Amino acid sequence: MAESSQIPYLLRAARGEVLDRPPVWMMRQAGRYMKAYRDLRDKYPSFRDRSEKAELAIEISLQPFRAFEPDGVILFSDILTPLPGIGIPFDIIESKGPVIDPPIRSQEQVDKLHPLEPEESLPFIREILQTLRREVGNKATVLGFVGAPWTLAAYAIEGKSSKDYAIIKSMAFSEPTILHQFLGKLADAIAIYVRYQIDCGAQVVQMFDSWAGQLSPVDYEVFALPYQRRVVEQVKATHPDTPLILYINGSAGILERMPQCGVDIVSVDWTVDMADARARLGANVGVQGNMDPCALYGSKDFIRDRILDTIRKAGKRGHIMNLGHGVLPSTPEENVAFFFETAKQADKLLAVGT
Rank of each mutant, 00 (worst) to 15 (best):
A237F: 11
I58V: 15
D42N: 15
A67F: 02
I311C: 12
F339R: 02
Y247E: 00
I168L: 01
P217Q: 15
W25L: 10
N249Q: 12
P45F: 03
G159K: 12
G298C: 10
I60K: 05
Q260T: 14
E117P: 02
V285M: 02
L215P: 00
Y193N: 10
I74W: 01
F47C: 04
P123A: 09
M207G: 12
V146A: 13
Y193P: 07
K112Y: 05
D49F: 00
C261P: 03
R304N: 00
I93V: 14
N249F: 00
Q6G: 11
A153V: 10
G318M: 04
T238W: 00
N322C: 02
T242K: 07
A13R: 03
A172M: 13
M258N: 09
I86W: 04
I74R: 00
D39I: 07
I190R: 09
S251H: 11
L246S: 05
I60E: 03
I307Y: 06
G253S: 15
V194E: 12
F124A: 14
I178S: 11
D199R: 15
P118H: 04
A14S: 11
R32T: 08
R66T: 13
L122T: 01
V287G: 05
G97P: 07
I60L: 00
F173Q: 09
L183P: 10
F124C: 08
K139M: 07
K139F: 08
A295T: 15
Y220T: 05
G144L: 02
E55T: 03
M34S: 06
